[in-house]
């Protein structure tokens, strides 16, 4: 299982345009729908924990690996997510910088952006679906969007409000 976890995540890391957040829908497809390693509720909880925890958002992968296969799962999932692109970037960075400004290279960064936006939007809809949000939770989602787009509050404030509202049993 640890091996197939490593293999699945290593494959995913190569198409993660937009970072680990962009992978949420596909991770859910592989981990919950395909292999039944986790259920919807656990997947949502792990996402929430990773949101609240300090550090890069790739750590949601660590938590998923932990729940599936303990310490070995956590470490191999994290390594699988980071290693392939790290090696590739290490090997290609100098050549890539040499091509700076070429038309085909600019076209890559221009072309990737709309896909990354779509992936992150899909990640948000997936969490909403997996968590089976009711009316109150949807209002909280909406309020967060509006507040986040119109203020410069640090995300931790939002997390704090979410945790409190949750503890009060409103969502």
């Amino acid at each position: 299982m640890v091996f197939s976890l490593f293999f699945e995540f290593a494959l995913l890391s190569c198409v993660a345009f937009g970072g680990a957040t962009a992978l949420l829908p596909e991770m859910h497809r592989v981990v919950v729908e395909q292999h039944h390693w986790l259920n919807d509720a656990t997947f949502t909880h792990l996402y929430a924990i990773a949101q609240a925890a300090p550090g890069p958002n790739v750590l949601v992968v660590t938590l998923i690996g932990w729940e599936i296969a303990g310490l070995a799962g956590a470490l191999s999932a994290t390594l699988a997510m980071c290693l392939p692109m790290s090696v590739l970037i290490y090997l290609l960075i100098d050549r890539w910088e040499g091509f700076a400004g070429r038309r085909w290279q600019k076209a890559i960064s221009l072309g990737v952006a709309p896909l990354a936006v779509g992936l992150i939007f899909s990640g948000a809809t997936l969490i909403a679906q997996a968590a089976e949000f009711g009316v109150a939770a949807c209002l909280l989602v909406l309020a967060t969007v509006v507040a986040n787009l119109n203020t410069r509050l640090h995300p931790l404030w939002f997390i704090g409000v979410g945790a409190s509202v949750g503890l009060l049993g409103w969502v």
Partner: peptide, 14 residues
Amino acid sequence: LRGIAAVGCGLLFA
């Protein structure tokens, strides 16, 4: 965790 997930979901949409 449900509360945090809802907020996290909103942050993603934003």
